[in-house]
Design a protein around this nucleic acid. Sequence first.
DNA 1: CACGTTCATGAAACCGATTACATTGCGACA
DNA 2: TGTCGCAATGTAATCGGTTTCATGAACGTG
Lengths: 336, 336
Amino acid sequence: MTDPTNPPKIRDVARLAGVSVATVSRALSNPAIVSEQARIAVEKAVAETGYTVNLMARNLRQQQVGAVLALVPNLANPFFSEILAGISDTLRAEGLSLLVLDTLRTDPDTPNGGIRSYLSRSRADGVIVLDGTLDPALFAHGSCPPLVQACEWIEGLAGPRVLADNETGARLAIEHLLGLGHRDIVHLTGPAKNTLSISRAAGVDAALATAGLPPAHRLEGAFTLSSGRAAAEALLARTPRPTAVFCDNDEMAIGLMAGLRAEGLDVPRDFSIVGFDNIEMSAYASVPLTTIRQKRAHLGRCAAERLLAQRTAPTPDETLILPVELVIRDSTAKRV
Amino acid sequence: MTDPTNPPKIRDVARLAGVSVATVSRALSNPAIVSEQARIAVEKAVAETGYTVNLMARNLRQQQVGAVLALVPNLANPFFSEILAGISDTLRAEGLSLLVLDTLRTDPDTPNGGIRSYLSRSRADGVIVLDGTLDPALFAHGSCPPLVQACEWIEGLAGPRVLADNETGARLAIEHLLGLGHRDIVHLTGPAKNTLSISRAAGVDAALATAGLPPAHRLEGAFTLSSGRAAAEALLARTPRPTAVFCDNDEMAIGLMAGLRAEGLDVPRDFSIVGFDNIEMSAYASVPLTTIRQKRAHLGRCAAERLLAQRTAPTPDETLILPVELVIRDSTAKRV
DNA sequence: CACGTTCATGAAACCGATTACATTGCGACA
DNA sequence: TGTCGCAATGTAATCGGTTTCATGAACGTG
């Protein structure tokens, strides 16, 4: 009956049920349009043979893949994997699969790491781009599936965007620090060209300008723990010594706190520190971290929903900005 | 030329190149068997039309999907996402796609969360199972693709396994603590039925037995930061008070340290703590964590390689055990 | 009773590639 | 010169479904 080497086809079911293959197909995909009698016969035959549709055949005929591709800068980074979890949620509800491509680990010999070959309508019904460093030309060919940018974005690439409110987040952080009396605030950024860092820098400087202060000094990091730790030294080299640091993500903030601790300095006594993201670990750091909460799974869900919406009606390229909020913990204090 | 709504087919290329579709197909997939003249004509026509093969059609004909499915217990958990990154690496090198299914987020109404429908040869060429809690019956049907178990495993499920050396890791941790003079050691485990926790418990008790000591007391956690923190209270309630804790992952260890700190206790003075995994954060904790290093990306790569090997020769169901090692940092000290 | 409508159904076209098989042309060799 | 073999190519079958279109039956209506 269920022979692993020779799975049942739709015509086997049809024969057994005494109907045509068309009727079997209809009974399975749209039971309402076949007679009760036929439907029952088909159900029985399906149960008996253990039939399941061959998705490759269905997909070929229907010209759809049943999968969405996510381009993620670094799959091992929990920041992105939580967004992926949200994407996965939404796709699952629609019966779609999630394909993941780690753009960090692309083949350095091939131009664009061979990503291009994955950007085809016959590989995925849609693409969610989480990597702001990709070449927009990658997506500029006829057979590139519908696309949504999430979290990061690419200048010059069309398509809806789903972003956290980076500017407001930065502004909230800076206003919090200003309210505590800090005036000499350093902004520890991600890579200089990173879109998140750029927009947060704008928020930082806007908040400072409102308070009549000049733009912040910046240190360039890499969103990693180690780059945060390394920033401690650069920070201490500054004279006069700053009293507060706003970090573009929690990992750098935690790395920085470790680096400062190693130098015998105390947070928040010597430095007030604000992070961004509110990763779970931040609440468990030696000094629980004040940070900007960003709902990553929700962002992933929104991005996936936007993409699915495009399947039917091609929506205008609007940008959805998700709210963020300040979470005050113990890493910030009044300037002494 | 490149009309988005009507991508070029192989026959368009054939017409333009003045050859048959068969020759185009051959020129693209096996250039050696066509004449130089034909190959050049085809290349030119491909460049001119912007043709790319339709993978759905190819896959249907060749009866393969070009993708491997990973069943992961929780995509948002960085522990698993790093394994996925390793899997992705290996698959990419073979031109295969990675499909990810988050078993945590399955539909609670459907039996087995609807995972079953993803386990079909027409959806994936192979499956890597990272979730030890699934029902083995899920995989016991004819059209389930070849399978490899990685990291965790399922009792009663056949197929090769790729595991870290959990018993040795646990043994190393306990021997380290014994060597520091600790005798009353608590084992903070994952969920009681988790395969990792069970095998590590065996390693723990074996090491204790060798030293002539009775099995460890256990506290059940959930591999989460919060369950680690919650364990602090239970730990302090024990009399006599234990002097060391071996945690089944670093996250619980970090949570536990936070909980102990909140109670005014000091690590390693009051408690020595050993974790498992060596996540990056462990080196940055307020007290850098002594732990067992486990190479997660490598584990993922090995699992993917095992799976790919099965495509050609069905390998025997052997278990590959990957080495682990003790990383000594500051969270452990001589018993006072 | 003739006719139009609706409903259920089956035959066959279709999706777009790969590949088995047939055919052709050419050079080598007897 | 005839024939054998090989290389290159084209024709058509094939993968396994979905969907269009034609057909026939059942039914209501004028």
